[in-house]
Simulated scan of single mutants.
Amino acid sequence: MFAIVEAGGKQFRVQEGLTVKVAKMDAEAGSELSLDKVLMAGEGEDLKIGTPYVDGAKVTCQVVEHGRDKKIIVFKKKRRKDYRKKQGHRQDFTTLKVTAIQA
């Protein structure tokens, strides 16, 4: 069984036992977390599609860790104007391990 959930403004396809990197969430590492914004859940004939969310469906996850992604460089330039701006950015993330899907 799989589900499509919304977390941090993005959509993820998850299955039991899968680990997913989402935008940083306020939860302690090692704690249980429930995602109830489930857009689609099931498999084959038992597939349920929400409008916009599936009623009564939730995905239970365990928070594995918090971290920061690799640095990306944001470079802006306006030609012939002697304008250059170089800036780095590292995005915070939370790693979740899916433990159960209820549809």
Results as ranks from 00 to 15, higher is better:
Gly42Ala: 07
Glu16Cys: 11
Glu16Asp: 08
Leu33His: 06
Glu45His: 04
Gly17Asp: 01
Tyr53Arg: 08
Thr51Cys: 00
Glu6Trp: 00
Ser31Tyr: 00
Gly56Lys: 06
Pro52Met: 09
Val63Thr: 13
Ala23Gln: 13
Glu43Val: 08
Val22Gly: 07
Gly44Gln: 09
Glu32Gly: 02
Lys24His: 03
Leu39Lys: 14
Val22Cys: 10
Asp55Ala: 14
Val5Ile: 12
Gln62Asp: 12
Leu33Gln: 09
Asp55Pro: 14
Gly56Tyr: 07
Val38Arg: 03
Lys21His: 09
Arg13Asn: 10
Gln15Cys: 09
Gly42Leu: 03
Met40Lys: 04
Met40Gln: 02
Gly8Val: 02
Phe12Lys: 11
Gln11Ala: 02
Gly9Thr: 01
Val63Met: 10
Ile49Ser: 02
Ala27Thr: 03
Lys58Trp: 03
Leu39Phe: 14
Glu28Ile: 02
Tyr53Glu: 03
Met40Trp: 00
Thr19Pro: 04
Ala29Arg: 02
Val5Leu: 03
Gln15Leu: 12
Glu28Asp: 13
Ala41Leu: 10
Thr51Met: 00
Val38Asn: 02
Glu16Met: 07
Val63Phe: 08
Lys21Thr: 13
Ser34Trp: 08
Pro52Arg: 11
Ala57Val: 07
Leu33Tyr: 11
Ile4Asn: 08
Thr60Gly: 05
Glu65Pro: 05
Asp36Trp: 04
Glu65Tyr: 04
Val22Trp: 06
Asp26Ala: 12
Ala57Tyr: 03
Ala29Tyr: 01
Lys24Ala: 07
Ala41Lys: 13
Asp36Glu: 14
Ala29Glu: 15
Pro52His: 08
Ile4Glu: 06
Glu45Phe: 06
Phe12His: 15
Val14Lys: 06
Asp26His: 11
Glu16Ala: 13
Ala57Phe: 06
Pro52Ile: 12
Val38Glu: 01
Val22Ala: 08
Gly9Met: 04
Gly30Ile: 05
Gly56Cys: 09
Glu16Gln: 13
Met25Asp: 02
Glu6Ser: 08
Lys48Ala: 15
Glu16Arg: 05
Leu39Val: 15
Lys37Glu: 12
Lys21Ser: 15
Asp46Ile: 00
Gly50Met: 12
Arg13Asp: 06
Thr19His: 01
Val38Ala: 04
Glu28Pro: 07
Ser31Asp: 12
Glu16Ile: 15
Lys21Tyr: 10
Gly42Trp: 00
Glu28Lys: 06
Thr51Gln: 01
Tyr53Cys: 03
Gly8Phe: 01
Gly17Met: 01
Phe12Asp: 12
Leu33Met: 11
Ala27Asp: 02
Val14Gln: 06
Lys24Ser: 02
Ala57Cys: 09
Gly30Pro: 13
Lys48Pro: 11
Ile49Asp: 08
Gly50Asn: 03
Ile4Ser: 06
Leu33Thr: 10
Lys37His: 10
Val54Ile: 05
Gln62Arg: 14
Leu47Arg: 07
Lys10Ser: 14
Val5Met: 01
Val63Glu: 12
Lys37Trp: 01
Asp26Met: 03
Val64His: 07
Thr51Ala: 05
